[in-house]
């Protein structure tokens, strides 16, 4: 069965069109990086507000987060692109949708990490005359960021794979490229094409997770009581 489906000629077709798939891969990477960055830039302060902000600010951030996390990504993209037409660029729209949704999740990663740092750390920093902001910045945040790496790896993987949803607004990312090959090229090669596409996703997630492992090893400090 598999032998019939996985035909050499179809693999050759995939290989011939590797350039196109790689082009899609580049778009996928760009979309992932832009979305993760937007998610970080918005999500990190949001997480900090949830921990340190005034009651009012905290409530606002929490509620926006609940809405974003509770809405399917596809719906967010549709609303932003077709409903609000926030940008004529599909890439920009997809980045905003993926980025905001990621911010809502990243804020929870950072919130948890900030809360996991013992209160004694903040207190000791205040006791050497640091302002609350300095104490958070120099003592709590560096520890919290280290503790966010595993959650962040998870989030990275999710965003990377969810960029495929951008297919609905016609961005030439990896999955779209694959689909075009299949529809406009060689329909017998469906399985081969999509297997190749999954392989690329897998390689990307694997490579980033490894890199983040390296990064966290590099910055690791011995754990234990202080």
């Amino acid at each position: 069965m598999a032998a019939i489906l996985l035909q050499t000629v179809d693999w050759l077709f995939v290989i011939d069109n590797m350039g196109l798939l790689l082009g899609g891969t580049v778009v996928t990477i760009a979309l992932t990086v832009a979305s993760i960055l937007l998610g970080f830039v918005v999500g990190f302060p949001a997480g900090a507000i949830e921990v340190y902000g005034s009651d009012r600010a905290r409530r606002v951030v929490e509620q926006v987060g609940v809405v974003l996390r509770g809405t399917p990504l596809l719906v967010i993209i549709m609303i932003l692109y077709f409903g609000l037409s926030i940008s004529s660029s599909a890439f920009v729209t997809a980045t905003i949708a993926l980025g905001l949704r990621s911010a809502a999740y990243q804020s929870q990663i950072f919130r948890g990490a900030l809360q996991s740092v013992d209160d004694g750390q903040l207190e000791a920093a205040r006791a050497v005359a640091m302002s609350r902001f300095e104490a958070i910045r120099h003592v709590v945040v560096p520890q919290a960021l280290r503790r966010s790496v595993p959650g962040f790896q998870n989030e990275f993987t999710i965003v990377l794979k969810d960029t495929s949803i951008a297919i609905v607004i016609g961005i030439g990312e990896l999955l779209t490229t694959g689909q075009n090959l299949y529809e406009g090229g060689q329909s017998t090669a469906a399985l081969e094409i999509f297997l190749a596409v999954s392989l690329v996703y897998f390689v990307l997630t694997f490579a980033t997770n490894r890199s983040l492992d390296r990064l966290s090893d590099y910055y690791a400090v011995p754990e234990g009581t202080t």
Partner: peptide
Amino acid sequence: NELRKQVGMVFQDFNLFAHL
């Protein structure tokens, strides 16, 4: 913060900055 520059504190459970 001016006050705390003049008054140091040593804690029962140390509270050393764990990442430093």
